[in-house]
């Protein structure tokens, strides 16, 4: 993240010009963000179509209708439900049964917006390539441009529990960094991004590959790592849920932190430093 001043604002935090624009996000990062956002959305929605073909999840190597699932989305007549290891949660209107669908995930959140396993797979496996290729290029860029070490890695003082705890409290109070402190990502933000880049994406890709019978022949050790094909399918689904949770929090944070400013910074790279709160100017 190259920090370039657009105005002649002094570095003194006390007197940061509230109109200071900084170049916060470089082009490759912005490009990847939007390509990745698109592929994740297509993957989640086409994945929902694929899940609808057999809305049950199991642990182990095998699992089918006569076996014990740990998660089921289903319906009884006109009532939809989610069954989580025996605990049944009514979901009529959202999952299992809605006004226009009797599938686990309603058409509003699936690609295509009607049930077609074949087409869902076609979308899923095309955007899987987009996701993997763009993420690989982004990772290489992040390593060589030092985006990773400079912008995403937690600095020594940020790794202290007391610092993280303070950051957590600030988030809970919706007090976001202002002035100079807003030039960099905050620790919780870094952890969330690192989690997506180094945990969720690799895990979702590897569990996806583990479900391929052809690749099971090429890389049987993948099955050993994840504990069998049905376990891999379950973990794949949990990763999808993780992406869903990340997107929710991410969008919430964008809205709370100033949607136009955040959106501009992800489109043009230029970010307006939030003004220092008056009462913080001690």
């Amino acid at each position: 993240m190259a920090v370039i001043e657009a105005t002649e604002a002094p570095h003194d935090t006390e007197q940061v010009n509230p109109r200071t624009l900084v170049y916060r996000t470089r082009l490759p990062v912005r490009l990847w963000h939007w390509i990745n956002a698109l592929s994740i959305f297509v993957m989640l929605m086409s994945g929902a179509t694929i899940f609808n073909a057999h809305p049950r999840l199991y642990w182990g190597a095998y699992g089918a209708n006569f076996d014990e699932p740990w998660l089921v989305i289903g319906r009884r007549g006109q009532e939809g439900f989610l069954n989580l290891a025996g605990l049944e949660i009514p979901t009529t209107g959202f999952l299992g049964f809605t006004e226009n669908s009797i599938r686990a995930f309603p058409p509003l959140v699936t690609i295509p917006n009607y049930y077609s396993l074949a087409e869902g797979r076609q979308w899923h496996f095309f955007f899987a390539w987009v996701l993997v290729i763009s993420a690989t290029l982004y990772l290489l860029y992040s390593l060589f441009s030092k985006h990773l070490s400079r912008d995403l890695a937690l600095q020594a003082h940020e790794r202290k529990l007391s610092h993280l705890w303070q950051d957590l409290k600030n988030h809970a109070r919706l007090r976001f960094p202002t002035g100079d402190a807003a030039r960099a990502y905050n620790p919780l933000q870094k952890i969330a991004y690192l989690g997506v880049i180094f945990v969720l994406i690799p895990l979702v890709v590897l569990t996806g590959l583990t479900m391929s019978p052809m690749l099971n022949a090429a890389f049987p050790w993948l099955l050993d790592i994840f504990g069998g094909r049905q376990s891999a399918r379950s973990i794949h689904f949990l990763c999808a849920a993780g992406f869903g949770a990340f997107i929710l929090v991410h969008l919430l944070m964008v809205v709370l932190a100033g949607p136009l400013n955040e959106l501009r910074s992800m489109v043009t790279g230029w970010y307006r430093l939030p003004a220092v709160r008056v009462k913080d100017r001690s």
Binding site: A53, H54, A61, Y62, A64, L117, M211, P213, R229, Q230
Partner: peptide, 12 residues
């Protein structure tokens, strides 16, 4: 061997 249905289920 494991039989994998396109729908997602498997049986051995």
């Amino acid at each position: 061997t494991r039989h994998d249905c396109v729908e997602g289920w498997s049986a051995i």
